[in-house]
Amino acid sequence: MISAGTIHVISTELTVGMFALAGISFLLCVIGKGPEVRESVAHWALLGGLLATPLAIISGFNAAPGDGLDSPLLANKLLLSMTATGLSLGLIIKWKRGAELDRVHAGIGMIATGLIMTTASIGGEFARGETLLFFLPKDLVFLFPKWASVIILILGLILIIKSTIEHRIRSRTSVP
């Protein structure tokens, strides 16, 4: 029988490793150094990290002592990892749609990596009471009221639908 804690360690190492690889590859894209496959590596590593993230979140919930989300650190971990997942998902879909890699795209990739690294660091503080990011106000949780979250959700859905429609129109008009 393997405990949730062990599964969480495996899944977080996978997630953090994949995101770190993606972050470095995006950095190489920005500075124009490294092998030509850096763009593919960045996006495939991002996808790998994305696949491992849900397992890390679920096993993290099960491994945490106590009942549910009883610490601001855990709440911040959840919000940061969901934000990073959203950014990464957007980048991968955009890349698969044929978008060119620009500085903003690569920058967002590095931000997603940074958010996952911060999440992992908070995990270290939660489990062992140690962190390198001692200067961050991790006990502070920005919690929106439900109605604000619903508005954000609707706004996000509108953006996704709009971008999908625009992409389809562009595909039809561009291909000869």
Binding site: G68, L69, D70, S71, P72, A75, L78, L79, M82, T83, T85, G86, L87, L89, G90, L91, I93, K94, V104, H105, I108, V141, L143, F144, P145, K146, S149, V150, I152, L153, L155, G156, L157, I158, L159, I160, K162, S163, T164
Partner: peptide
Amino acid sequence: WQVEEPTLMLQGFALLILCAGLVLMQ
């Protein structure tokens, strides 16, 4: 420390969708 879990989950999911949408609309 206590938090209303459904509210936090909803906010997390909303952030995920919003961030994905913002990147796609870039």
